[in-house]
Design a protein around this nucleic acid. Structure first.
Length: 922
RNA sequence: GGGCUCGUAGAUCAGUGGUAGAUCACCCCCCUGGCACGGGGGAGGCCGCGGGUUCAAAUCCCGCCGAGUCCA
C-alpha cells in the first residue's frame, strides 16, 4: 500500500514557503503560510471569524461574486460555460439531482468518450443537495440550493493505451492551487489566514487526493484531483476501504461555494442574509418578526457560534443549542424562542430557491424520481411557512426566487406550486380525518395510539408522526413516537433485490469492424448488398454480422426492421436486429454462410409505418409542448407499427380539449409538408445552439451527434424518419392515460394506422347505434336514456316484488301449528329477493316463514321468525340445506341457505314442520 | 421501479360472508312574523370493472382500472 502523503508535496507550496502542520484539535494535516498555526481552521476546531469583519477588499452581491470568479478564470485562459439543469437525470441515470459541477461531465466526458465543451473551463453550476436538509437555517452556512463555482481541466496520460476525446495535460495540482491562491489574492484576502487541509476524496467509483480550502473558519473551496478508479488490485487503499489504481484520464475537479464567498465578503450573521437579503426582509415582515436592539445583538453573537449547530457533528440540536446558550450566558429557552423563527425563515428562503431551480428546469412533482424530491421539499416548505406564520402564498415566495434566477416560465412554476399545494392540502385533510377517528378510538382507553398505526399513517397516508401527536392532543389521545421511528418505516421496505447477470459475449465480436449504417445515408432505400463477415449461432436461429446494412437495429424506442437476406443458395428471414458496440446483429432463421454475398431486403411496409410513427412522435411532442407548456419533456417513448406512445412530464391530467388542440396542431404540421432534415454537428455546437432540450430521449455518446429538424423542432435522435411531414399522412391521438403521478401517456397512430384505428372506433360506434336502432350521433343520448330507464325499471321491479310478497303472505296459505304459533311452509319458485320479501311480510304478520325455491338450478331456502318465537332460523336453514347437499346460516331471526340438489327440495320442505318442532323443543 | 393503504348515496365514511347503513347536503311538511335551530317524512346506490371460490360475495381470492402515500 502506498500513502497519498507524497501527493500533497507541491512545488507551489515549496516556492511560497508553506509549512505542513497537524491540527492540534482534530489531527488533520494542513498547509499554511503561517508557520505558528496550531489549528486547521475549520469548525468545530475554530469559530467563524469573518462575521462583522471585512475579509475581502470589497463586499460583493451574489451576482457580483459569480462574475468576479468567472472573469478571474476567463482572464487565466478558461472558457466560461453556461450552467446545466439541476435535474441531472436528464443526462445520466445514476443520480437524480446535480450536486456538483463535475456532475455535468459525468460519465461521458470524465471517461474520455466525449470531449468537454471547453478545456480548461469555468462554470457556476446551480446544485441541490438534500442530505444537508436538517442543517439548513440552523448552522447559518448550510443551504440545500447553491451554486458551485468551478474550474475544470481534463487531462490524459501521455502513455495512455487507448484513444480519448481529449489529449495530453492541460494543468494539474500545482496550477490548481496557484489559481485558487491567486483568486484569494485578487479579492484582497489575508493569505496568511488560508489553510489547505489534506483530505483525500472518494466517490462514485473514483478517487484521488483532494484539498479543503479554509479561510477564517469557513470552508470556501474543495480542490479534487480525480485520478484513480476502483480496482481490487490497486496500489492505494482509500478511506472507504476499497483499493484504487491510477486511470488514463485525470481531472481537476474544483468546487467553490458561491454563497460562502459572498457571505465571507459581507460578514453578515448568516449566509442567507448575504445571498437573498430582500427575501429574508420580506419573510420577516410577513411573519411579524421584530427584534429589540438587545435581541439583535444577541443574534449576532449567536451567529458566530452557529457553526456548532451541525447535526452531523453535534449529538443533538438541543444539546448544541444548550452549549451555545451557556457560552453566551443566556437561558436556552430564550435563545430558542429567538432563533427558531429565524431559522425557519432562512430555511424557507433556501427551499424556495431550490423549488425555483427544480420547477424552472422542468421538474414536475411526482411520486417517483426527482418529482418526488420536489414534492418533499415543497411540503416541507409549506409546513415551515405555516409554522412560522408567513402571510404570503407559497407560489409568490417561490416566484420571488424564480424571478431573481431569471426563469421565463414563471407562470408555469406558480401553477405547479398551486396545484401541488392543493394536493397537499387534500392529503392533510384526508389524513386529519383518519387521525381524528383513531384519536377518538384511543381517547377512551388508557392506551396511546399504537406505533404500527403511526407507521401506517406515515407510510401509507403521508402524515408525519408529530402531526398525529398534534391532532391527537386535541382529542385527548396519547401518542408516543419512538426515537427510531424512521428506521421502523424503513424496515417495512425490505428489499429482496435480485440482479440478473449477463452472459458473457463471444470474443469474436471484438475483432469485427463496426457495421456501416446505410440506413442513415438513405432512409428510403430498402435494398442493399453486403458481405457476411461472421455468423453466430443463437439459441433460436443465427446472428449475422454484415459489413454494411440497411436494417435498423432496435433503439431509441424504435423497433427493429424485419426482412430477408438472400444469397445464391438460400433466403434467410430477418426477425430481429440488435446493435452491440457499433456492430449490427441480424437474427435470422437460416445460416447464409460466412463470406457469402447477400442481397438484403427490408420489409418496406413495416419500415414505412415505423418511420411515419417516429416522425409523428416528434410532431406530437412538439404540439404537446405548444398546448401544455414549455415544461413538457419526454419521459419515454415507444414506436410501433399500429400505434406509438409518448410519455411526457406534466402535472395535471390531459383534457379532451387539450387532445383536440394537440391533434389539430400536429395535423397542421403534417399538411404543411415540412422537410425532415438530419445533420451531424459537433455536440458542443449543437448544444450551444439548441440547448439541453435536444436530449429528449437521453444523451448519445460521441463527438458528433445526429440531429433531426422538423420545422422549429430539433432533437438528438438516432431513428429513421420520413423525408417530409406530409408522408406521415395523418395523426390520431387514440387515448391519454396517467403512467404515474406527473407523467401522462399519449397513445397515437400515424398514416395508414391512423385511418385503421379511426375505422375501428367508428365500427364500434356503428354497432352500438345498430343495437340501439338510432343514428350514431344519437347514441350518447339514447344510451343515457336507456340506462336511466333500466335503473327505473329495477326499482319498479323491487316495488312490485314487495307488493307481490305482501299479496302472497296475505293469501290463505296452508298454515301449520308449531307449538302455539303458526308457520307457513311453501315452495315458490322465485329469486332470493322475492323469497326474502315474502318471508318478511309473513313475519310482520306474526307467522314463521319457511320458503323454498328451485329457480336457477339450485335449491334456496329463506326462513324468517318473529321476535321471541323461540326458534333459531339459522338452525332450521342449516338442517333444510343439509338435505339438498349445501349449507346455510344467518342471524337467529332471518336465515338463508341452499344447495345444489333441487330434486330433494320438496322432500326437504315436507320435513320442515318436523324440523321446526324439533328446533323449538331443543 | 418496488412496498403499503383506499375505491359503498352528491360529500364524508361505517358495514369483513347471510335483508346495503349513518352523518351532512338535497326535496316536502311541522314549528316561527322571518331566519338560525329543532321535529317529522322523502328521494338518492351496476358497493370501481372483470373473473374465481361459495348454497350465498360490498365482504374472501386473482387480474385490471383509478386515487393516495412511503422508499430507491
Amino acid at each position: 500500500m502506498s500513502s497519498l502523503e507524497q501527493e500533497y508535496r507541491l512545488d507551489y507550496f515549496e516556492a511560497e514557503d508553506f509549512v505542513r502542520r497537524e491540527c492540534s484539535s482534530c489531527g488533520a494535516h494542513f498547509w499554511t503560510r503561517d508557520h505558528d498555526r496550531e489549528l486547521c481552521g475549520e469548525p468545530p476546531c475554530e469559530d467563524y471569524r469573518f462575521i462583522d469583519d471585512q475579509s475581502f477588499d470589497e463586499e460583493y452581491t451574489l451576482e457580483e461574486m459569480r462574475e468576479a470568479f468567472l472573469s478571474y478564470f476567463e482572464d487565466h485562459d478558461h472558457e466560461r460555460i453556461d450552467p446545466y439543469p439541476v435535474a441531472a437525470n436528464r443526462w445520466r441515470d445514476d443520480v437524480l439531482l446535480t450536486q456538483a459541477s463535475i456532475y455535468d461531465f459525468q460519465p461521458l466526458v470524465t471517461s474520455g468518450q466525449t470531449p468537454p465543451p471547453a478545456n480548461p473551463l469555468t462554470i457556476s453550476q446551480p446544485c441541490i443537495r438534500m442530505q444537508d436538509i436538517d442543517n439548513v437555517g440552523k448552522t447559518g452556512r448550510h443551504t440545500m440550493a447553491f451554486e458551485m463555482m468551478a474550474h475544470h481541466a481534463f487531462n490524459t496520460r501521455e502513455d495512455a493505451d487507448e484513444e480519448y476525446a481529449y489529449e495530453g495535460e492541460v494543468y494539474w495540482k500545482d496550477e490548481t492551487v496557484e489559481y485558487c491562491d491567486g483568486l484569494f489574492e485578487s479579492l484582497g484576502a489575508d493569505l496568511e489566514e488560508i489553510t489547505y487541509i489534506e483530505d483525500p476524496w472518494v466517490g462514485g467509483g473514483n478517487a484521488g487526493p483532494a484539498i479543503e480550502v479554509i479561510y477564517k473558519g469557513a470552508e470556501l473551496a474543495t480542490l479534487v484531483f480525480m485520478s484513480m478508479e476502483q480496482d481490487p488490485d490497486g496500489e492505494y487503499e482509500m478511506k472507504d476501504g476499497n483499493r484504487y489504481s491510477p486511470m488514463d484520464t485525470y481531472i481537476v475537479d474544483t468546487g467553490y461555494g458561491l454563497e460562502r464567498w459572498t457571505w465571507m465578503s459581507q460578514g453578515t450573521p448568516t449566509v442567507y442574509e448575504a445571498v437573498y437579503p430582500e427575501m429574508i426582509a420580506f419573510l420577516k415582515e410577513h411573519a411579524g418578526i421584530e427584534h429589540t436592539d438587545e435581541e439583535a445583538e444577541l443574534i449576532h453573537r449567536t451567529a458566530k457560534l452557529a457553526g456548532h449547530m451541525d447535526i452531523d457533528e453535534a449529538e443533538d440540536m438541543e444539546t448544541a443549542r444548550g452549549e451555545i446558550a451557556d457560552r453566551l450566558d443566556v437561558s436556552v429557552d430564550h435563545l430558542t424562542d429567538l432563533m427558531e423563527p429565524l431559522e425557519d425563515i432562512y430555511a424557507i428562503a433556501d427551499h424556495c430557491r431550490a423549488l425555483a431551480y427544480m420547477f424552472g428546469d422542468g421538474i414536475v412533482p411526482s411520486n417517483v424520481g426527482t418529482g418526488y424530491l420536489a414534492r418533499m421539499v415543497l411540503r416541507r416548505t409549506k409546513r415551515l411557512v405555516d409554522n412560522v406564520g408567513v402571510d404570503a402564498p407559497l407560489d409568490e415566495l417561490v416566484d420571488m426566487q424564480a424571478k431573481r434566477l431569471e426563469y421565463d416560465n414563471r407562470d408555469t412554476i406558480r401553477d405547479i406550486v398551486r396545484t401541488e399545494e392543493a394536493k397537499y392540502r387534500e392529503t392533510l385533510e384526508r389524513g386529519s380525518r383518519k387521525v381524528e377517528q383513531l384519536a377518538a378510538e384511543y381517547a377512551d382507553t388508557d392506551e396511546p395510539i399504537p406505533v404500527d398505526q403511526l407507521i401506517e399513517l406515515y407510510d401509507s397516508h403521508g402524515i408525519q408522526p408529530d402531526m398525529v401527536a398534534e391532532i391527537a392532543a386535541e382529542r385527548d389521545a396519547a401518542v408516543e413516537i419512538p426515537d427510531d421511528f424512521y428506521s421502523l418505516v424503513a424496515a417495512r421496505h425490505d428489499d429482496a433485490g435480485g440482479a440478473a447477470v449477463d452472459a458473457e459475449r463471444d470474443e469474436r465480436l471484438g475483432d469485427l469492424p463496426e457495421t456501416d449504417k446505410l440506413y442513415y445515408e438513405n432512409q428510403d432505400r430498402m435494398e442493399f448488398e453486403a458481405v457476411v463477415l461472421d455468423v453466430f449461432e443463437a439459441e433460436e436461429g443465427y446472428d449475422v454480422v454484415l459489413d454494411q446494412t440497411m436494417f435498423y437495429p432496435e433503439g431509441g424506442g424504435q423497433p427493429a426492421d424485419h426482412g430477408t437476406l438472400a444469397s445464391e443458395e438460400t433466403t434467410a428471414e430477418v426477425t430481429d436486429v440488435q446493435i452491440e458496440d457499433g456492430i449490427v446483429l441480424h437474427r435470422t432463421d437460416r445460416d447464409p454462410g460466412k463470406g457469402e454475398f447477400v442481397r438484403g431486403q427490408v420489409d418496406a411496409e413495416r419500415r414505412r409505418r415505423l418511420m411515419a410513427h417516429h416522425t409523428a412522435t416528434h410532431i406530437i411532442g412538439h404540439a404537446t409542448r405548444q398546448v401544455l407548456g414549455d415544461h413538457i419533456r419526454q419521459a419515454g417513448a415507444q414506436k410501433g407499427v399500429d400505434s406509438s406512445r409518448l410519455d411526457v412530464r406534466h402535472y395535471e391530467r390531459i383534457t379532451r380539449e387539450d387532445v383536440r388542440e394537440i391533434e389539430r396542431i400536429a395535423n397542421e404540421m403534417v399538411r404543411e409538408d415540412i422537410s425532415v432534415r438530419q445533420e451531424w454537428p459537433h455536440r458542443n455546437d449543437a448544444q450551444e445552439e439548441h440547448g439541453f432540450d435536444l436530449y429528449q430521449g437521453g444523451i448519445p455518446p460521441g463527438t458528433n451527434i445526429r440531429l433531426i429538424h422538423i420545422g422549429d423542432d430539433v432533437q438528438a435522435c438516432g431513428g429513421t424518419h420520413v423525408a417530409r411531414t406530409g408522408k406521415v399522412g395523418a395523426i390520431k391521438v387514440l387515448k391519454t392515460e396517467p403512467v404515474q403521478d406527473g407523467v401522462e401517456r399519449l397513445v397515437f397512430a400515424a398514416g395508414a394506422a391512423a385511418i385503421e384505428s379511426t375505422q375501428r372506433t367508428e365500427d364500434a360506434l356503428y354497432e352500438a347505434a345498430d343495437v340501439l336502432d338510432v343514428n350514431p350521433q344519437e347514441v350518447p343520448e339514447t344510451a343515457e336514456r336507456f340506462f336511466t330507464e333500466w335503473k327505473e325499471r329495477g326499482k319498479q321491479i323491487d316495488r312490485l316484488k314487495d307488493e307481490l310478497a305482501e299479496a302472497r303472505a296475505a293469501a290463505e296459505a296452508d298454515e301449520i301449528a308449531v307449538g302455539d304459533q303458526s308457520a307457513v311452509v311453501q315452495r315458490l319458485d322465485a329469486d332470493v329477493s322475492e323469497l326474502r320479501a315474502t318471508a318478511n311480510a309473513l313475519v310482520d304478520d306474526g307467522t314463521i316463514a319457511v320458503l323454498g325455491s328451485g329457480e336457477g338450478g339450485s335449491a334456496v331456502f329463506v326462513v324468517g321468525v318473529p321476535d321471541d318465537a323461540g326458534i333459531n332460523a339459522g338452525e332450521v336453514v342449516g338442517e333444510l340445506a343439509g338435505k339438498v347437499g349445501g349449507g346455510g346460516g344467518g342471524p337467529p331471526d332471518f336465515a338463508q341457505g341452499g344447495g345444489p340438489n333441487v330434486d330433494a327440495l320438496d322432500d326437504a320442505l315436507d320435513d320442515a314442520p318436523e324440523i321446526l318442532r324439533g328446533v323449538l323443543n331443543a
